[in-house]
Design a protein around this nucleic acid. Structure first.
Length: 351
DNA sequence: TCTGGGGTCCTAGGACCC
DNA sequence: TCTGGGGTCCTAGGACCC
């Protein structure tokens, strides 16, 4: 028999609004929406995260803030306070890390823990998860949900299954029955496009997907197709990995109103370059590739990239190249909604 | 309904080299 | 005369995640 492998996926419940409520107890029980300024329904931007009370009105992450406002004008609308969320996240991640053989953070509000050596079976692992939820609640006054499973994919689906403030144990022998009735969209990596493609093929549940010939999925989706077949069958060999390397650093800005004034665009581009440069210096990175991004008024989006023959962290090189790259986008008379700048092919100084 | 900002990974064509 | 094959880098675009 294979050695027991137990992975936890810990997901903080409605994290941004929950931190806001913790800091401002008078908000408890109210529909709290963290995101862009709704400006009486005329705001530009989206919802970052909505409290469970706000979700009752149909408000969801990534929804246009103007639509959220129409659904619930009486809601409490807050701009994000990332310093607050980062502090809370760091404290919680330290707690989680201290209980894991291996630990992998997957964003500000979630993490994978490999706890194989710390439990003797899945019953034991369920108790472990319950205690962890209570420890986080006691120490940080925030709730989370946990999935307990033999791999990352199942653990992630599990953490979403009884939210908020719940946990779900999925044993290897129960995995296929557990997955079978769920919508394909529940599989991490299946978004709106893949869901639509599968639906057109009459594949709606994970059970439908598991029954499809794997060669057919590979023909349709390439490498991702064979991965999909594994996931649908409850199989995922990915390890919880501790080490993480930054691949790129970028900044972007959506203007309050679409612009066609070159001066304003260059000014913002310089600010983006300065912020990126600061982060490069702080972290001891050099870059080789510069990519600018432009989104025009009707949301058509383009990028232009340039790779240098040498790595650098020089601000003037970044500024001058980004100006040259964006120049081609300023020719027409289309108004610009967003500009972005990103550097990649990163290497550490002294390497 | 009208779409943020931070990222990662994948694909595909062309250049270039051996 | 009728056009290799593999590897790597570069560029552009797209799907997806939180």
């Amino acid at each position: 028999m294979d050695a027991l492998r137990v992975i936890l996926h810990v997901d903080l419940d409605a994290f941004f609004p929950s931190v806001e409520v913790r800091e401002h107890p008078e908000l408890k029980g109210k529909p709290v929406v963290v995101g862009a300024d709704p400006k009486e329904g005329k705001g530009r931007g989206v919802v970052s995260s909505a409290s469970y009370e706000a979700r009752k009105f149909g408000i969801r992450s990534a929804m246009p803030i103007s639509r959220a406002w129409k659904l619930c004008p009486e809601g409490v609308y807050l701009r994000p306070h990332f310093d607050l969320y980062n502090t809370a996240s760091n404290s919680i991640m330290e707690i989680l890390k201290s209980h894991a053989d291996r630990f992998e953070q997957g964003g500000i509000d979630e993490a994978y823990l490999d706890i194989s050596s710390r439990i003797k079976d899945f019953d034991d692992a369920g108790e472990f998860a319950k205690k962890l939820i209570e420890e986080v609640l006691h120490k940080e006054k925030l709730t989370c949900s946990i999935g307990v499973a033999p791999n990352k994919m199942l653990a992630k689906i599990g953490s979403d299954f009884k939210k908020p403030y719940g946990f779900t144990v999925i044993r290897e022998e129960d995995a296929k029955d557990f997955l079978s009735p769920l919508q394909v969209r529940k599989i991490p990596g299946v978004g709106p496009k893949t869901e639509k493609m599968l639906k057109d093929l009459k594949i709606e549940t994970i059970g439908d997907l598991a029954a499809i010939n794997p060669e057919r999925l590979t023909r349709l989706f390439g490498v991702w197709g064979s991965r999909l077949h594994e996931y649908a069958n409850g199989i995922d060999y990915r390890e919880v990995r501790e080490e993480y390397e930054t691949k790129s650093i970028g900044r972007e800005l959506t203007f309050e109103k679409d612009v066609n004034d070159e001066g304003q665009i260059f000014e913002v581009l310089d600010e983006l370059a300065e912020e990126i440069h600061e982060e490069l210096i702080d972290n001891g990175f050099r870059f080789k590739t510069i990519t600018v991004k432009v989104r025009y008024e009707h949301f058509d989006t383009y990028t232009r990239a340039k790779s240098l023959s040498f790595p650098t962290n020089d601000l003037d090189i970044l500024r001058n190249n980004s100006k040259r790259l964006i120049d081609a986008f300023l020719r027409g008379n289309k108004k610009i909604r967003l500009i972005g700048l990103r550097v990649s092919t990163l290497m550490h100084r002294n390497s």
